[in-house]
Simulated assay, not measured.
Amino acid sequence: MRKFLYENGLLLATFVLIASSLVGQVLTGWHDNNDDLQQMGLATLSLGQYLGSGHLLEATFENWESEFLQMGVYVVLTIGLRQKGSPESKKLTGEEDVDQQPDPAKPDAPWPVRRGGWWLRLYQHSLSIVFLLLFLGAMYLHARGGTIVYNIEQAHEGKPLVDVWGYLHTSRFWFESFQNWQSEFVSIFSLVSLSIFLRQQSSPQSKPVDAATSETGK
């Protein structure tokens, strides 16, 4: 067990952080949503009802959408773009291990590499493909949850209801999306730029403390 915890500590720690913050979001969102419903003179929700509400669905996947976009964009941009002095960038010159063509003759090569053809093509780009699918799925669930919340407000004001496609055409949906997207791009910019000059002892996201500012790579 100790070996398992040591070898998977980073993944386990982030899972605990996700779960604990999600619990906090649910509890606070439940009260916040009920406050809004009370102001509209509508019946409040039990905690169980809130777990299936559009309010929680929208709030959760609005954020997940931007996170998947951030990581997908980061993966794709670092394929061809460079940043002098940043450990988040590939070297300015020369080929790196990740640029080499996969070798099906390696004894421990994954099955898609040994199979070749379309299986290899998909495997070569599987990380960015999955991030794209996760982004699109989260975007849809964001829109679906937002549609439910939007229609509750529309019905209260006696205005027409919309379907998910209709909600995608509202400025509200895109405002929710763009305000999150830009914050994720700010985080990428901050990580790339600050890591040029600043250091963190023992972190793989940082260059060695005694490395020159102009050096690229860890």
Rank of each mutant, 00 (worst) to 15 (best):
Y6H: 06
L12I: 15
L12D: 07
L12V: 10
L17T: 02
I18N: 02
Q25C: 11
V26C: 12
L27K: 10
G29Q: 07
H31F: 12
H31A: 15
D35L: 11
M40D: 12
G41M: 02
L45K: 09
S46V: 03
Y50I: 02
G54Q: 04
L57V: 06
N63M: 13
E65Y: 10
E67Y: 12
M71K: 14
S86G: 06
E88D: 08
L92N: 02
G94A: 07
Q100T: 06
Q101M: 11
K106Y: 11
P107I: 13
P112G: 05
G117I: 00
G117M: 02
G117C: 03
G117V: 00
W118F: 15
W119E: 07
L120V: 06
R121W: 15
Y123D: 04
Y123C: 02
L127D: 03
S128T: 12
F131T: 03
L132P: 00
L133H: 01
L134K: 09
L136T: 13
A138V: 07
Y140S: 08
R144K: 14
G145R: 01
G146T: 01
T147C: 05
V149T: 08
L161T: 15
L161Y: 04
V164A: 05
Y167D: 00
F175S: 08
S177I: 03
F178W: 13
E184Y: 13
E184L: 09
E184I: 03
V192Y: 10
V192M: 08
S193W: 06
F197S: 05
L198W: 13
L198A: 12
Q201I: 05
S206E: 06
A211K: 03
